[in-house]
Nucleic acid binder design. Structure first.
Lengths: 211, 211
DNA sequence: ACCTGAACACCGTTCAAGT
DNA sequence: ACCTGAACACCGTTCAAGT
């Protein structure tokens, strides 16, 4: 009964992704994954060199989802292209909450990573940006190109009580929480930031910016 | 000889920071820290509840450096204030390379975290931003308020060879690496992004932006 | 009352012994 | 040649036994 379906790297990686989706990244240990796959721990080492390389493969499989979600139809106007791919990345990262930490922990430039960066860069170049300016704009977009919405305000759940935090101003607490406008809408924040940055980029491009 | 200087929470946290500075965050284990402090592992639990709380304390001690580095003199014009504090944060994070991962792993809103957010928010409010717009601008600055410069291009060391990556365009590879302008200057990228975002913020403020 | 050695339930990975 | 149980060197944390 053990090993009915023979193990291969795809099954290993898919198992790791499923496990991370269900119980978080910290649940993904070689031993636990092996037991989920009904296999002895050592068997995994036939298909992945070590745990680091397993993480690499998990990240690659998530980034592959970016392109799929982006549709990849006919080439669009640069701004639409950048927006579409970035939002696609964001939706993949939202589907796999562990992906953010996993992506940030990687230090190797995988083909998947490069492919995504090239798609965005090419859109900017086609849109008339110089290589220099395109590079700076990519940096300004920063982690947002990976679909990360900076979680500025960890633990949003508990309301911020100024009386509990010595000296914090009521008006500042309100601004931090944006209590006036109800709860903070992450989708809105993401596209607000994207628009502000792309507006700035377009302005620099149009004015012929040089370093 | 063991326990010559009696242990206290400050010594525990300082020891953890030193250890992380020297050997990285992953070297900070309760057992290893205990042995560095010439103490039995269990002794640490008298001063920190568990490892999570030790991380909390390490992060708090780093964020405390932000304010120190920022000088905290007389109140400045909003843009100078935001820039100064953000750069101060960046320099602290550069001094402690593990800090970024540690800060991002925290989920509780500590007084140190709140204090930094309040200082930035207050500067914006004093500068004439509405609480709403101040909130959105904070989101747009994103992780940069913690001094993180998004490491877009992991493994920058090895030059990007287009012939090794199927289909990547030479011109895109150049833009990604910015080979034309020499190596990528992280300091320049950080202040370029900061300026672009603060320019955009100021424009929205001046035009009386409303959602 | 305080302190701590041993134990528990885990890790990632190696390696030698078994088929 | 392949597979894998046991082992190694670690974890964080608990707990009971010793002073």
């Amino acid at each position: 009964m053990t090993g009915r379906t023979p193990l291969n790297s795809e099954r290993v990686v898919a198992g790791a992704v499923t496990l991370a989706d269900r119980e978080g990244l910290e649940a993904v240990s070689m031993r636990r994954l092996a037991s989920d796959l009904d296999v002895v721990p050592m068997a995994l080492y036939k298909h992945v060199r070590n745990k680091e390389q397993l993480y690499d493969a998990m990240v690659a499989s998530i980034i592959a989802e970016y392109g799929v979600a982006a549709g990849d139809g006919s080439p669009k106007e640069w701004r639409e292209e950048v927006t579409r791919r970035t939002i696609a990345a964001r939706s993949a990262v939202i589907r796999h909450p562990w992906a953010r930490r996993a992506i940030e922990s990687r230090t190797t430039r995988s083909p998947a990573v490069l492919g995504h960066m090239e798609a965005l860069t090419s859109a900017l170049l086609r849109g008339g940006f110089t290589p220099d300016l395109a590079h700076h704009v990519m940096h300004t977009l920063g982690n947002r190109i990976w679909g990360f919405s900076p979680e500025l305000f960890p633990g949003e759940s508990a309301p911020l009580d100024p009386t509990q935090h010595a000296g914090i101003l009521r008006v500042a607490a309100d601004a931090i929480e944006r209590r006036s406008g109800g709860t903070c809408d992450e989708d809105f924040e993401f596209s607000f930031a994207l628009d502000l940055i792309l507006d700035g980029a377009e302005r620099l491009r149009a004015s012929g910016w040089r370093s």
